[in-house]
């Protein structure tokens, strides 16, 4: 099976990976302090614009990637909607107790989940792991032994996936049947994880020995094949959020969707 994973380079690809990473972590922390559902909805729209318009991937692929978002929305919001605290009761049925407050809080959590997911996927779709680790080494002074271990490990993932495929065929051919329940789950976990882990550990060990034999050293003074620096696109990325965040607050104040400014239980 050959996967076509071609995409167009956009300005999001040109941003310095470490910078993009740190900015997204900062956004994460900021989003944790948003308790106003109206701001959250506007924020989500801003994240969607990046996702839909600027990742450079074809829309069909974007659509497929976003399918789990629906599930994510349900997971993040369902228990809060059904079992959250609140006073303005809408529905009470056995253990389920839906109130206006819990409903909005649930939606808020769902939107929050989707913003994180969107920003995370935007990052993954526009950042090549190799560049990310080269950038970590150059801008954030990550020790080369960690960065190269990560890059070597990423290269091994296709091999592991192939092994997994072979393993499942082998189990099928030998007529292995899985039982149900916790014991069955453990048996299944074991029959896959032991061969995968043992092969991978052997391979990792061989690679490490080979790297050391070729004088891979822990010195921090080294040259890099990819020189990763900064560009005007970094400023553009900051500007984007510097515009959309105040805008989502302003819009939330002047054109609120729900008459609630704090979804937490008072």
């Amino acid at each position: 099976m050959r996967l076509d994973f071609s995409y167009k380079q956009t300005w999001l690809h040109q941003i310095n990976p470490s910078f993009k990473f740190i900015l997204i972590v900062i956004l994460f922390i900021h989003i944790l302090f948003i308790h106003n559902i109206n701001v959250m909805i506007n924020y989500m729209a801003a994240a969607f614009i990046l996702y839909v318009a600027f990742t450079g991937h074809p829309w069909k692929r974007l659509l497929i990637i976003s399918i789990p978002f629906v599930l994510l929305f349900v997971t993040s919001s369902a228990s809060m909607i059904f079992f959250g605290q609140g006073e303005n009761t809408w529905l009470k049925w056995g253990l389920v107790h839906i109130t206006e407050e819990s409903f909005l809080r649930g939606l808020h959590l769902g939107f929050r989940g989707i913003i994180f997911a969107t920003l995370g996927v935007v990052f993954s779709l526009t950042t090549r792991p190799v560049y990310l680790f080269y950038s970590f080494m150059q801008q954030l002074k990550l020790k080369p032994k960690y960065a190269y271990s990560f890059m070597a490990a990423f290269r091994l993932i296709p091999i592991m996936i192939e092994e997994l495929q072979i393993l499942s065929y082998a189990l099928k051919v030998r007529g292995v049947q899985h039982q149900k329940g916790v014991a069955g789950f453990f048996k299944k976990l074991q029959s896959y994880s032991i061969p995968l882990l043992s092969q991978s550990i052997r391979r990792a060990h061989r690679i490490a020995v080979a790297m050391e034999a070729k004088h891979f050293s822990a010195t921090t003074k080294r040259t890099f094949y990819y020189q990763i620096g900064f560009s005007k696109f970094d400023i553009l990325f900051v500007m984007y959020f510097a515009v959309v965040i105040p805008a989502s607050y302003l819009l939330a104040i002047h054109f609120p969707y729900f008459p609630v400014t704090d979804v937490r239980f008072q």
Binding site: S149, A153, I201, A204
Partner: peptide
């Protein structure tokens, strides 16, 4: 941690990452 330790740890971790 030596290079071997790190590489093995990260490979184990990435299997679990999947």
């Amino acid at each position: 941690l030596k290079l071997t330790d790190i590489l093995v740890t990260i490979i184990i971790a990435l299997i679990f990452g999947v």
